[in-house]
Design a protein around this nucleic acid. Sequence first.
DNA 1: CATGAATGAGTATTCATTCAT
DNA 2: GATGAATGAATACTCATTCAT
Lengths: 232, 232, 232, 232
Amino acid sequence: MQAPAGRPRRRRVEEKERRIIAAARAEFRRHGFDKARIAEIARRVGVAEGTVYLYFANKNALLLAVAAEIYDGLTREAAAGVEEIADTRGRLAFLARLHFRRLLREWRLLVMAMTPYKMADDYGSTEGYRLNRAYVRVFDLVIRDGVNRGEIRADLPLGVMRDMFYGGLEYAVRTHRLRPAGSDPDPMLDHFLGAFAAGIMARPAAAGAAREAEPVTRRLEEVAARLEAMLR
Amino acid sequence: MQAPAGRPRRRRVEEKERRIIAAARAEFRRHGFDKARIAEIARRVGVAEGTVYLYFANKNALLLAVAAEIYDGLTREAAAGVEEIADTRGRLAFLARLHFRRLLREWRLLVMAMTPYKMADDYGSTEGYRLNRAYVRVFDLVIRDGVNRGEIRADLPLGVMRDMFYGGLEYAVRTHRLRPAGSDPDPMLDHFLGAFAAGIMARPAAAGAAREAEPVTRRLEEVAARLEAMLR
Amino acid sequence: MQAPAGRPRRRRVEEKERRIIAAARAEFRRHGFDKARIAEIARRVGVAEGTVYLYFANKNALLLAVAAEIYDGLTREAAAGVEEIADTRGRLAFLARLHFRRLLREWRLLVMAMTPYKMADDYGSTEGYRLNRAYVRVFDLVIRDGVNRGEIRADLPLGVMRDMFYGGLEYAVRTHRLRPAGSDPDPMLDHFLGAFAAGIMARPAAAGAAREAEPVTRRLEEVAARLEAMLR
Amino acid sequence: MQAPAGRPRRRRVEEKERRIIAAARAEFRRHGFDKARIAEIARRVGVAEGTVYLYFANKNALLLAVAAEIYDGLTREAAAGVEEIADTRGRLAFLARLHFRRLLREWRLLVMAMTPYKMADDYGSTEGYRLNRAYVRVFDLVIRDGVNRGEIRADLPLGVMRDMFYGGLEYAVRTHRLRPAGSDPDPMLDHFLGAFAAGIMARPAAAGAAREAEPVTRRLEEVAARLEAMLR
DNA sequence: CATGAATGAGTATTCATTCAT
DNA sequence: GATGAATGAATACTCATTCAT
């Protein structure tokens, strides 16, 4: 009834791989790719340097594994969250917030993982590219679903929306990082989503007219507020 | 009786500085930052390596000077172009195309010039940041002007629009680079502008219902303007 | 009633040893000693790396086994060929051609097998040395036989002839390798043998004057032999 | 009257190059190529490691420089010695002794320098090959001169003689190294030269006969010496 | 202003060999 | 006998930057 020896050993191997990735993740986060030292990663895991190379061909492969782990997590969270939300707008809000938060919290690591390292010209054929595709597929599905439901404009190429969404979010994180620590990003995200939705959502006739009037009424309210202030 | 040597000497110095920057730009473009060699830059200019250090404190300063040159050009082109266009939408189209083209053509150099700052924790206090601010100020003016004209929603923070615009464009370039060489980016840019405008414009003169609402909102707008004038 | 397992098992073991040597030979030939990888040898044989070390103490021992195999083959061929040839000159011609061809064909492997010993200070106590001795013994026997028959000068130390023969041949191969591929080495080998024979043969039945001197020297030789016999 | 600054600096540079080569020579001799450490060479010269690379592109270039120095010395000595000797046989004896002694004294370094390093297949296009050619050219001239004087057989290709000469000598050194330290190599060298000369020298009728008798008379003299010893 | 020789820190990677199973 | 995961030593080379002239 002894379990075949292969199993536990195999499990130990997978366990070790995970620990190496975890250590690498910490090291990359702390020091960036170039200054991360394989020796330090090995030391943390408690193995010899050579052992790292039994699991990963080289430093780049290690970064890729870290990136894959991050992307996997992101993709899973994104997919799970989307499944629990019914309306397109809500789904986009969820994806935006998820992406924004993760990017903000692990800026250095994620930029490193997402920016094709060293601006490779062959990014398209990269493993990193495939990881990215898998992640944004969740976004794509949300959009396609929204188009089918008539909520999203059918005339816009998906790629344009995607670039505007994720590009805008990345820049938004960058901007947010310039603000004092602890600033609440939610109002900004609301605006972002508002603009993005306005850009891509189909306009049901009535709602459209109402929305067009929105800024004007808002300005009127501002004027009113000022008048009130004067009278007080 | 000594002729004022300062001028011509100064001119010679500036001339040499320009030549160093030009050589650096070529070298950075060809090899990227890390593999660019100061020695090669000096050789091209025809000076000793040490001489480069009389003009620039270090390699980073050299990259910064190159970036500054690029940004200056961009900023000038952007400002000049905007001045010749009357309507906001046309201005944005111009800025988008300009940015897209430059980024596409000098992707490596521009990403290089921007990436270190992306990851830096003190980006806000960076010279690179200041260069960037000067450049996007053109965009900001276009937007503010558009808001004043009532063409652009007044409720959206400028920063959100800016991030969506430039973030979206950067990602669009990245996407475009994955397509076969020579692909025409214009249709995509049109869609991008369409979506962006729809997101931020107060009245993309489009939807039928919206059009009917027009007289009403216009009258409201006029009322608001008069009230504002009174308050000022 | 247990069948004597030793035999077949032993046979299997020897079989595996042979296969390892064969794989090592191929690997060494292809990549040279330093770049030959034990792992690749094991893979080819279809055993684990550790298994190789059950048969050979280390990489050097493996090279030695390969060298031994080569030397054994050479030695056997040399001995067999010499046995079938009657005259000394013909025997030397055979040995020269055999050595030349083998060295030419397996230059890299054979130089590799010999070079470490070239430089080692303890070459004399080396296994490689013993292998070499066994091989050149065939040459030695030919020479001794030739001396006994009066065909070869008795005054020359055997070692001198041996060094000239094999040293000359090794350099001849080296020279031949510089010539265009496919060049015919035979004319060169004929000249080599001619010069070598002229150098060591007692009477290259050639020069006229030498023939006249023959009776005199023969008589002197006889006197010397008699005196020597007395002294012994 | 100040000497141009270029000179002494240039002289210092050449001086440093010499010192690096000398240190490398010592290091290579002691440890062989692979185990020689650039760091140690730099330390001995008293410069930084990087400085070594200002003078030599890499470790191989350094070995080549050492080899060149050795070859230059050998070539010069060989040429000078030959010039002072009139007869071909004497010249060959000189060259043989010179080569033998140098090879014996600096066996490791010279084998390293002479053996095309790592058995390169493109030895023919190697700088090492050119150095070697320059050296053996002295031998070639001696031979050609001997042929012109009628002392050396005109029917033998020069390459054959060269290979036999230097190949034989290399093997002779190897053999000699197996003998007890301090053994006198001269008798062996005499025999070597005797055999070599017999192999390549043209035989003037008379001299030929005398020469044939030589070994016999030598043996007679040995016998006489032993008889004398008995009578003493 | 200009030179250019000298500096020296800093690390990924390989692979023969071992030994617990 | 066989396995194969783990070990760990060992080092050439680059190039931005400096500073004596």
